[in-house]
């Protein structure tokens, strides 16, 4: 039996009937065509599907769409506001924090969470905060720098 849900995603409310077994990531990608959130594994390990749910990062592959009823969600598509990039996006661009771009949406969400918990994190704290997100391209060096850049940029704002 399908489940009716209403979810606010990047500021827009969506009401849909979802199949109980539909994962939140598939709801975003297949039902709403928000394909910026990616799927990289089936063991909740890689973090490519990381989004913000009620202000906290979650792996959207490990949540049923039905569970998101009433939630506020932010995906990569909602990071920039009024065409102005979010500091984390600025950071990744400025510091070459991405190569193939596939892990990037989830990685930026992890970065947002790190800075939310701690606006001025050390390198070690950033690295620890990224432990649930895999990148195969960058060796993480520039991702760490990207988050440091975003921290500075946010502090200056």
């Amino acid at each position: 039996m399908n489940v009716p849900i209403t979810v606010t995603i990047n500021g827009t409310a969506y009401t849909r009937d979802v199949e109980p077994r539909q994962l939140l990531v598939h709801f975003l990608r297949e039902t709403l065509n928000l394909t910026g959130t990616h799927i990289g594994c089936d063991t909740s390990s890689c973090g490519a599907c990381t989004i913000m749910l009620n202000g906290q990062t979650v792996k959207s592959c490990t949540l049923l769409a039905a569970q998101a009823d009433g939630a506020e969600i932010m995906t990569v598509e909602g990071l920039a506001t009024d065409g102005k990039l979010h500091p984390i996006q600025e950071g990744f661009w400025q510091e070459h924090g991405l190569q193939c771009g596939f892990c990037t949406p989830g990685m930026m969400m992890a970065g947002v969470q790190i800075l939310k918990n701690n606006p001025n994190p050390t390198e070690e704290e950033i690295r620890h905060g990224l432990e649930g997100n895999f990148c195969r391209c960058t060796g993480y060096h520039n991702i760490v720098k990207s988050i440091q850049y975003a921290a500075k940029k946010s502090a200056a704002m």
Binding site: P20, R21, L23, D42, T43, S44, C61, T62, L63, L64, A66, Q67
Partner: peptide, 26 residues
């Protein structure tokens, strides 16, 4: 019972577990 889901949902995806009902406590 579905709690945080971080053991159960991967097991469901791999179809190692196929319950007829999930009761979500969230």
């Amino acid at each position: 019972i579905l709690a945080g889901g971080h053991s159960l949902i991967p097991a469901l995806k791999l179809r190692l577990s196929k319950p007829a009902h999930l009761i979500d406590l969230n």
